[in-house]
Amino acid sequence: MAEQVALSRTQVCGILREELFQGDAFHQSDTHIFIIMGASGDLAKKKIYPTIWWLFRDGLLPENTFIVGYARSRLTVADIRKQSEPFFKATPEEKLKLEDFFARNSYVAGQYDDAASYQRLNSHMNALHLGSQANRLFYLALPPTVYEAVTKNIHESCMSQIGWNRIIVEKPFGRDLQSSDRLSNHISSLFREDQIYRIDHYLGKEMVQNLMVLRFANRIFGPIWNRDNIACVILTFKEPFGTEGRGGYFDEFGIIRDVMQNHLLQMLCLVAMEKPASTNSDDVRDEKVKVLKCISEVQANNVVLGQYVGNPDGEGEATKGYLDDPTVPRGSTTATFAAVVLYVENERWDGVPFILRCGKALNERKAEVRLQFHDVAGDIFHQQCKRNELVIRVQPNEAVYTKMMTKKPGMFFNPEESELDLTYGNRYKNVKLPDAYERLILDVFCGSQMHFVRSDELREAWRIFTPLLHQIELEKPKPIPYIYGSRGPTEADELMKRVGFQYEGTYKWVNP
């Protein structure tokens, strides 16, 4: 592979701008107003304001973009700056750019259920340069409990009458099928589907988006991507930290609602779906819905739930269990780990287990898709061969690698495990991989909904998990304890083995 010439960040961002501006969906010269509902909250200060700053800094926003914060707290732009700027990672050389960014910011205080507050917000936006005809993007960085009041008031008082209007809704989209349907029906009564952007930030990850290209742009994968060759698929999300004093919020939802029903299920769809007619948003989402419709409700015998306990040999936070978090209700049975087996009941995947695993306070930070292939028929190497695996590593250190057998150097035919490896950090030294939120917010500006969740996708996802969630809430089974920093409950490994996964433990990928 030829040595790549190092590029400056300015040059890299210039390439990104060229890609972005050559499309006809990006209205570079139009006025846009980006409204952050819930501007005083954690999500706004840690993710949304920093993301908008990065896009502005790199010249990736339309030229005439204004940012308006809205929340109940009586704040000023200076207050917003004070709480969000520490997350910007701005350099001293960017000081003038930073001043320009905050000059485009404003803030309006108001209630979430008060019509007069929204009329005041609308008047404020109209007073901005060309504000009355601007395109408006409303980001709901809010708890779902206020979605209905907020969307109703936005629709009645704050819509642009000339430009387009788009609304970005953060997960969780309800707690179960019934609450999700209620919320979807409410929002759909106010906005068209092409105006609604239900954001799952995992769909903005580079390697998640790469799944489609790997599958449908490489001839070698087509013939082997089926039940005849693939023994099982494992989708993993692991965090090495616990709730760390923020367990009160987590306890309301648990690990299945927080990660599995959305992030992991979306990745499953991209692995299992048929080739779409095109890369058009609805063509892709149509195929994802077909996959979900082929999955039956989760069966309790295919589920393992766990909850982390303190590690007596650990240090600091590792010595504390979930129930030691003062914000967690006493005696909570909320799971911090889950392993679930699903089956896609169609011709391509009949009988292939899709194993979804996620948890907190585990032994490493990792998100990946792992396809394990069947054993080689007619073994001539005296059971020395391990199964081939194709691994798409989402985070950290984005990579695609194939675990395969090669001859060990020497005189004899002794096979050993090795890999074919594409590590993004080595291959793409001159490429700026956008943060997931950067990519998705740019998608909203461009009107691309491919990486957002459609209402029928959402409904099918909740259909699969709601009976299990209701059973857990009714019966309150005690989750299996696992030690902070471990791989999780051993019962999860036993479940995976029972459905056909072979864990060798003899080879570990190392970032080159």
Rank of each mutant, 00 (worst) to 15 (best):
G41K: 01
D30N: 14
G23W: 06
G14Q: 13
E239G: 03
W53I: 01
I220T: 10
Y49N: 03
F101W: 06
F56L: 02
Y70G: 05
I256E: 04
L128Q: 11
H186E: 08
Y70W: 12
P62H: 10
G204E: 04
F102L: 09
R104H: 14
L214W: 09
G247A: 05
S8D: 15
K171T: 00
A116K: 14
G163V: 06
T243V: 15
A115M: 13
E239H: 02
P92I: 15
S160I: 15
W225M: 07
N226R: 03
L137Y: 07
N135E: 10
E94A: 06
L96C: 10
L60E: 09
R81T: 12
Q11F: 14
K97A: 09
I234K: 09
G242A: 07
L7K: 14
L203C: 04
S160C: 13
R120M: 08
F102Q: 04
L55P: 03
L16K: 13
P144M: 01
K47N: 05
F21P: 10
K152R: 15
L96I: 07
F173L: 07
G204M: 05
F21L: 09
E193H: 06
I256M: 14
V150A: 06
P240N: 12
T243D: 04
N226C: 11
N185M: 10
P92E: 08
H201K: 01
A115E: 12
A44R: 01
G59Q: 08
Y118E: 01
E19A: 14
R120F: 11
S123R: 13
N210P: 02
D113P: 09
T31L: 10
F34I: 06
C13G: 12
A217W: 05
P92Y: 13
L121M: 15
D200W: 01
F138S: 02
G248R: 07
F56D: 04
A109N: 15
R81M: 15
H27G: 13
L183E: 01
L142M: 08
A39C: 07
E85F: 06
Q119F: 09
M1R: 06
Q111M: 09
F88K: 05
E99Y: 06
G69R: 01
R120T: 14
G242C: 05
H27C: 01
L98W: 07
R9F: 10
F216H: 07
G41H: 00
L43C: 00
H124L: 09
Q28V: 15
